[in-house]
Simulated scan of single mutants.
Amino acid sequence: MTENLAAAPAALRINDKAPGFAARSTAGEVSLSSYRGRWLLFFSHPADFTSVCTSEFIALARAHESFSKLNCDLLGLSVDSLYAHVAWLRDIERSFGVKVAFPLIEDSAMVIAKAYGMLDNSADSSATVRATYVIDPKGVIRAIVWYPMNVGRSVGELLRLVEALQTSEREGALAPEGWTHGDALLEPAAASMEDACKPYEGQSWYYRERRG
């Protein structure tokens, strides 16, 4: 079911290599390696057929195309069985008219969740898991976001996060607070006294908006 998980660290950090895996999902068997070359939003949820998780899946399904435009795939995970996943996603479509087209992984043994630090190694339940990892096309973790089980994630913020990461990397600049598409980026701060003392046309050496 898994590959390279034994060597995974107890707690993953930004810029770590994402642990590889292969598992059953609602779209057939999936593996992390199959997402190479694309960004991936990999997230876990506490349980199927729960209210907050349902609200998240409805929002993620509706935003699926927006993520796709950013060359970013969605991949969910919980410890529920594959059959529970299928039943839940079918009921979401029947009850809310929303089709969840992205895969949802079965992780009944909690192997993947523990490898990603979504669960403590001594945990026997996934009830507190609501974790999100943004993984880049090279398989490197670029962002980690955690929410408690009683508060749902902001899908709009996750979209903003993915686009900000991509834009910052592409432009060699920084994304300031609340940055959205079309906003000004920031230049990296001067890293030497010589650079800090240069004239910056009314801007601070440590806070410079990119112009032009």
Rank of each mutant, 00 (worst) to 15 (best):
V79G: 11
T180R: 12
E163A: 07
S68M: 06
A184H: 04
V145C: 11
R130F: 04
L185N: 05
P188M: 05
S125N: 02
A164L: 12
L77G: 04
E163P: 03
A173C: 09
E169R: 14
N150R: 10
L185W: 09
D107L: 14
L186M: 07
A173E: 06
G156F: 02
K69D: 11
I144K: 03
S108L: 08
D91Q: 03
A175R: 11
E194D: 12
V98S: 03
K99H: 06
A101L: 14
A184L: 10
A184V: 05
D136M: 01
L82Y: 09
K114P: 06
K99Q: 05
E93N: 01
L82W: 07
S168N: 08
A123K: 07
V100M: 07
A191K: 02
L74C: 12
I135P: 09
A131N: 11
S66T: 08
Y133V: 03
G172P: 06
L77E: 08
M193F: 15
G97A: 10
M110K: 08
L158P: 03
D120C: 02
A84R: 04
N150S: 09
A191L: 01
S81K: 13
L185S: 05
D136N: 09
V98Y: 01
D107W: 11
L174F: 00
R142L: 08
G182C: 00
S168E: 11
E177W: 10
S168T: 13
A164K: 04
R153M: 10
L185M: 08
G76Q: 05
S122R: 10
A127R: 09
A131P: 06
Y83H: 13
T167L: 08
G156K: 05
P103G: 07
E177H: 09
P103Y: 02
V151S: 06
S78Q: 08
W179H: 00
H181A: 03
V155E: 15
A87K: 07
M193W: 15
A190D: 00
E177N: 04
D120H: 04
T132P: 12
A101C: 14
L77W: 13
I105F: 06
V155Y: 14
M118V: 04
K138D: 13
A189P: 13
S68G: 14
G76V: 01
L74K: 11
C72V: 14
R170P: 14
S68W: 07
D124G: 02
A127E: 08
E194S: 14
E106D: 15
L119C: 04
K99Y: 01
L161D: 03
L161T: 03
K138C: 09
